[in-house]
Write a protein that binds this DNA or RNA. Structure first.
Lengths: 158, 158
DNA sequence: GCTAATCTGTACTTTATAGTCAAGATTACT
DNA sequence: AGTAATCTTGACTATAAAGTACAGATTAGC
């Protein structure tokens, strides 16, 4: 069970846009450079975020991306669903049953019930977290890094 | 965040082998047919499970796969790690930092701390569950399906 | 209106995952 | 020893995900 590149970079870009604050905006070249990915790829990811309704784009000179809503109204779980889909739907009978008529068979149901439990556990984390939480975390981190000498390479682990 | 095909079919095959019970064994053709995948693909998946130390293979006539340990000693989290890797390792700075020197930067750390929280939540489910739990679940399900008329297509949702 | 900075969309290439194939090795049974 | 059933391996093909390229559309400022 891995994170897709979309999920990783998509969320990072969203955090950066959120960090730009109300009225602030970020351009594709800026995010591209900050994340170390190509502008074309950043554009592709931002398109997903825009279609998902999380960011708004302004074209032309002085354009860029801003949050479509206040950070506290953006639930990370929703963002992740749009960027990478859900754990569970990819393993329903229809997609992984092969030719066997096994939806009513017990092996499927015990495995599916496990997947569902995993999905619930993930949702409990991701549906409680809003973008605001990540931004605050970030501010804490800035302080953290500033106050601790030699903090280079330090990772914030809750 | 999705399940890989390896995770889905690997765990299903393991459940089937476990269901065969102590001393019982299953062959590749049997699992292939039960899961509706090709024998070659089943073989590939079983190789992963064998190298992970979860099943033992017996070659030759009357051969097949059996559990390498009692079902209660097989932790599903370990199986999933072998079949599909972990959420977190794929998103460390080294793999997704691009060219930017950002391990100490706050965006990374807030996102990584979120991934870590997700991983912890998943682990809480998967490290508590053993293969035995899935097998018991299966027996319950058999009863469930037998006792309820028209249960075809019914899904066991805890 | 012209220019520069920006987003948009489609189509393309590359890489990773999923899935197949065929030849070889092992074992039980006769 | 011979045969049939089984696992083992490595190389192959197909499909999906990741990442790129480029021409087009929009806007601000002059």
């Amino acid at each position: 069970m891995k994170l897709s590149a979309n999920e990783e970079y998509g969320l990072r870009c969203l955090v950066r846009i959120g960090y730009a604050g109300e009225g602030g905006s970020l351009t594709i070249p800026e995010m591209s450079q900050a994340e170390g990915v190509s502008p074309a790829y950043a554009a592709k990811i931002l398109r997903v975020l825009r279609r998902g309704g999380f960011v708004k784009a302004a074209r032309g000179k002085d354009g860029g991306y801003t949050l479509a809503r206040p950070a506290e109204a953006i639930v990370i779980g929703d963002v992740m669903d749009v960027l990478g889909g859900r754990i569970f739907e990819s393993s329903f009978c229809d997609s992984h049953a092969g030719q066997a008529p096994i939806c009513t068979r017990s092996v499927d149901c015990s495995v599916r019930s496990l997947w569902r439990a995993v999905q619930v556990a993930v949702d409990q984390v991701l549906s409680k977290a809003t973008l605001r939480d990540l931004l605050q975390n970030e501010e804490e981190m800035n302080t953290w890094v500033r106050t601790i000498p030699g903090a280079k390479g330090l990772h914030f682990i809750q």
